[in-house]
């Protein structure tokens, strides 16, 4: 085949090769995802539909949808509690993190890096040790409790440890850096001239913040709230160490199902349910937060 056609065909082949390059580059990442996300997810999904038990001959795949019914039915209150704890921790973390990130980004000056380091510094200690430290801080005989009792903030028999508040405080503390860093990153990127422009266009400092700074930092807020809420929802360490008999979260239940009851199908079903609920919540949140943050003025106009 030495006809001119041969040459003609080589050109599209080169183009084809060029078009294939992005897929080659995507390859390793896709394989990684497939191996370590899709495949385990598939087996987890399969497992969640099995029945039986380890002691009576193992598990068998039987389309056991009732695992999901049980997951939702038996542990509904702990789902609600998990999302309540995680949601409260997210809101409190946001209220603490935003002013902190703002101060570092706009008032940090040459201390910026040192302050950011201080935010991340707790990470140099293990998650568990940090949580255990809180156990000591909030302990019944701790100065914190006695001070609060003296000030009348806490009743005489009152306690901090092994309460909802302690778990929420622990979650807030442990996930705070995940809130601070994205907010800081988005604030840091804001061109100060935009804020000056707002001031120039008859906005007081406060109005400029609400109308310009806050909407422009919305991506950081959205990222920060997700990075806090998602892991907090599935957390079990804080409830384990800082909670009492009525503070168990869904993570504790999954842990107990896996390790103590070795009821792998139920644990898998519960994990899947948790994942689905979080996905739906996040999806709704992004739709809502995305439009809210970006359409602030339009919303105002509609009033």
């Amino acid at each position: 085949m030495t006809s001119p056609k041969g040459r003609d065909r080589s050109a599209p082949r080169g183009a084809l090769r060029r078009r294939a390059i992005p897929y080659f580059l995507l390859g390793p990442g896709l394989i990684w995802l497939l191996l370590f996300f899709v495949v385990p997810l598939y087996f987890m999904g399969r497992l969640s539909l099995e029945s039986g038990s380890l002691e009576t001959g193992g598990f068998e795949f039987t389309w056991e949808w009732s695992n999901y019914g049980h997951a939702l039915g038996d542990y509904q209150d702990r789902f609600v509690r998990s999302f309540f704890f995680a949601g409260s921790a997210t809101v409190i973390a946001l209220l603490i993190a935003y002013p902190l990130a703002y101060a570092i980004a706009f008032r940090g000056g040459r201390w910026k890096n040192a302050l950011l380091f201080a935010v991340v510094a707790p990470f140099f200690t293990t998650y568990l040790i940090r949580t255990l430290a809180w156990q000591t801080i909030l302990s019944d005989d701790s100065p914190v409790v006695s001070t609060m009792q003296t000030l009348g903030l806490l009743g005489d028999g009152g306690r901090l440890l092994a309460t909802d508040g302690a778990v929420i405080a622990g979650l807030t503390y442990n996930f705070l850096p995940f809130m601070v860093l994205p907010i800081y990153a988005s604030l840091e990127r804001i061109d100060v001239r935009l804020i000056e422009a707002a001031r120039d266009l008859y906005s007081s400092a406060r109005t400029a913040f609400w109308r310009v700074t806050l909407p422009l930092s919305a991506p950081g807020v959205v990222a920060g709230t997700l990075l806090t809420f998602i892991p907090a929802s599935g957390d079990y360490i804080n409830a384990e160490f800082l909670g009492g008999t009525n503070q168990a979260m869904i993570g504790n239940v999954i842990q107990s199902l896996y390790l103590n009851l070795r009821d792998f199908p139920s644990a898998a079903a519960l994990s899947f349910t948790l994942m689905a609920v979080i996905l739906i919540a996040v999806f709704i949140y992004i739709r809502f937060a995305g439009s809210e943050a970006l359409m602030g003025e339009e919303a105002e106009k509609a009033k």
Partner: peptide, 30 residues
């Protein structure tokens, strides 16, 4: 007197248009 109380307006070198608002809302801002 802070900028927002002065009867002046500024056109910035970098334009400083609000990226989260469309043209209409940028102009309507003041």
């Amino acid at each position: 007197m802070p900028p927002h109380r002065r009867p002046t307006n500024t056109v910035f070198q970098s334009y400083a248009l609000f990226p989260h608002l469309n043209v209409r809302e940028n102009v309507a801002y003041g």
